[in-house]
Design a protein around this nucleic acid. Structure first.
Length: 280
DNA sequence: AGAATAACCTGCGTGC
DNA sequence: TGCACGCAGGTTATTC
């Protein structure tokens, strides 16, 4: 599944390919993703007169894509296994191709084998939705935004016994840090994933905030990560060459100290770290 | 309230 | 070859 960098890449790809283009149809083949796809989605997008449907903007909030139309905002989440591909008309269907958004000669095709993703509608415009939709109410700050600082993390975690890895994954403080980049960011910061969030001091949170930001920026620069089924919105299969330092490298030598990378489980999720480089 | 667990799904690799 | 099992990038609802 996509983490924030992958969603950001898709977001940019969508903006380049479809902003200013008019949606001419929605074809839905399977209705139940995480939630049901709203009834009459096509009419909602096109508006009562049927004259709407020009895509005005594409934004990202956390791992949600926000497609702004004059009538409201289409919200898309890719879950663990979702992809969006831009295809010419007439490309044969694959299994799990649940929704097509038709833009004239091209189609934006949503595929999601595990169906943890979502296609939703908000009557708000994109900007209002980003701050006001119920889905976004409890979310933390954007990791690439100015509000995200070590100080913020420090203040949000006082007296909290939860391991720092789980705090990162929860999205309540900062969003967009998924299972791969949580491990990678903590490695870069030299912090052990099991440490209680409340026991990390202000200066180490400064370092962690910088590590998170840089890890995500590096991944975006690399065009996403090396995830198996990530597909850029252009339809190009994305095997990008972001090299992980710890994720998936159990037993292999740490790229810094040469010692073996260790794997543990936290909240039923794999965590990877270097016991020597991440001592506390 | 914070924290831990279960649940939603399919696909793939592994080991018997 | 087949089958059971565990695991996978996320998020929520439920429980204590």
């Amino acid at each position: 599944m996509p983490e924030l960098p992958e969603v950001e890449i898709v977001c940019r790809g969508l903006a380049d390919a479809f902003v200013g283009h008019r949606l001419t149809g929605v074809i839905r083949r399977f209705n139940r993703l995480r939630w049901p796809i709203p009834d009459a989605l096509e009419q909602l997008i096109l508006g009562p007169s049927g004259a709407g449907g020009v895509l005005r903007s594409v934004e990202r909030r956390s791992k949600y894509l926000l497609l702004g139309f004059d009538t409201g905002t289409l919200l898309i989440h890719l879950g663990m296994s979702g992809t969006l591909r831009r295809l010419a008309g007439g490309v044969p269907l694959r299994v799990h191709d649940h929704v097509d958004f038709v833009f004239g000669e091209h189609v934006l095709r949503y595929n999601d084998p595990r169906r943890f993703g979502a296609v939703l509608w908000s009557a708000d415009t994109a900007q209002a939705t980003a701050s006001g939709h119920a889905l976004f109410r409890k979310l933390g700050v954007e990791p690439l935004g100015e509000q995200f600082t070590g100080r913020l993390m420090y203040e949000a975690t006082r007296r909290r016994a939860t391991p720092i890895k789980q705090v990162l994954l929860s999205g309540a403080v900062v969003v967009g840090v998924g299972n791969i980049y949580a491990s990678e960011s903590l490695f870069r910061a030299g912090i052990r994933p099991t440490v209680a969030a409340g026991r990390i001091g202000a200066s180490r949170y400064d370092r962690l905030a910088g590590s998170i930001r840089q890890t995500l920026l590096d991944a975006i620069a690399a065009g996403g990560s090396t995830l198996r089924d990530f597909v850029a919105s252009t339809g190009q299969t994305g095997y990008f060459q972001l090299q992980c330092n710890v994720y998936g490298r159990t037993g292999q030598p740490c790229r810094v100290c040469g010692g073996p990378i260790r794997a543990i489980r936290q909240q039923q999720r794999a965590t990877f770290y270097c016991p020597a480089c991440q001592r506390a």
